[in-house]
């Protein structure tokens, strides 16, 4: 592509050219002067500060330098809509389905010991499936939730020596949801019971047992086996109390 012979304009030889023979572009050129050392203006400082703040905002949402976190803050993808459209589906969902769904979310706190399937770990953590404490009255279950329990105690014929912490930091509604969830999901309910525990019932439990120390097995057994927390039954479709 290049042609080395087209230098007829450069008719001076190295070292012999006089300034007069130089072409104008070289002659008219100005000298590069030593650079100044002026201070930075306020506007420039403010703009630089804005760049730093912007970068800090982006960097601040990175959840730390963890190699296992893949989702940035503000970047949770929206769930895909259901086939009927999300809004329409929302109206048709029964109250109990939503209550159970929320209960399942709260149950995430429990899965480390009781496991997602409610079977626990044999010899280590007691199961919820087949447990007389779950299948029996709600008063004992509410009491355990609020104050926790320290072993040894017996569940489904096996002895455990573990401590369960108190969950009284959760709201009444969340405790009601998770107790409903474990009773309906893992329990074997007596004839005629729907297993639902309402917020009102947990409020009553807090009045009875709130602030008491951690239970041992003897203290819990003092509560009648089939004692139910007081409160109105609710319509499973609407969630309204039935008089």
């Amino acid at each position: 592509m290049s042609d080395h012979d087209h230098d007829q304009n450069l008719d001076y030889e190295a070292g012999t050219a006089s300034v007069v023979d130089m072409h104008d572009a070289v002659k008219r050129e100005k000298v590069l002067q030593p650079s100044g050392h002026e201070p930075m203006g306020v506007t420039a400082l403010v703009l630089c500060a804005m760049a730093l703040i912007g970068g800090g905002i982006v960097f601040g949402h990175n959840n730390g330098f963890s190699s296992s976190i893949y989702v940035q803050d503000f970047y949770t993808p929206e769930p895909p809509p259901s086939e009927d459209g999300a809004a329409a589906a929302d109206e048709n969902v029964a109250w109990i389905d939503k209550w159970m769904k929320d209960g399942k979310k709260v149950y995430n706190n429990c899965i480390a010991c009781h496991q997602p399937d409610g079977l626990g770990a044999p010899g280590q953590f007691p199961p919820l499936v087949g447990s007389e404490w779950v299948d029996g009255g709600t008063e004992r279950l509410g009491a355990i939730m609020l104050n926790g329990i320290a072993g040894p105690f017996t569940v489904a014929g096996q002895s455990y020596n573990q401590a369960m912490p108190a969950w009284n930091g959760l709201s009444d509604e969340k405790i009601a949801q998770v107790v409903t969830y474990i009773r309906r999901e893992f329990g074997t309910l007596p004839e005629g019971q729907d297993g639902v525990v309402t917020t009102e019932m947990i409020e009553a439990a807090r009045e009875l047992y709130g602030g008491k120390p951690t239970w041992d097995e003897g203290g819990l057994l003092a509560i009648p086996e089939d004692a139910m927390l007081p409160g109105a039954k609710v319509d499973l479709q609407t969630g309204e109390p039935i008089q």
């Binding site: 703009l47 630089c48 804005m50 760049a51 730093l52 912007g54 970068g55 800090g56 982006v58 960097f59 949402h61 990175n62 959840n63 730390g64 330098f65 963890s66 190699s67 296992s68 976190i69 893949y70 989702v71 940035q72």
Partner: peptide, 18 residues
């Protein structure tokens, strides 16, 4: 990618505005 990689790159791109 681990979330810190895009976050760090985004921050660097903004810092380059200096």
């Amino acid at each position: 990618f681990p979330a810190w990689m895009p976050a760090l790159s985004g921050a660097a791109t903004l810092f380059i505005l200096i």
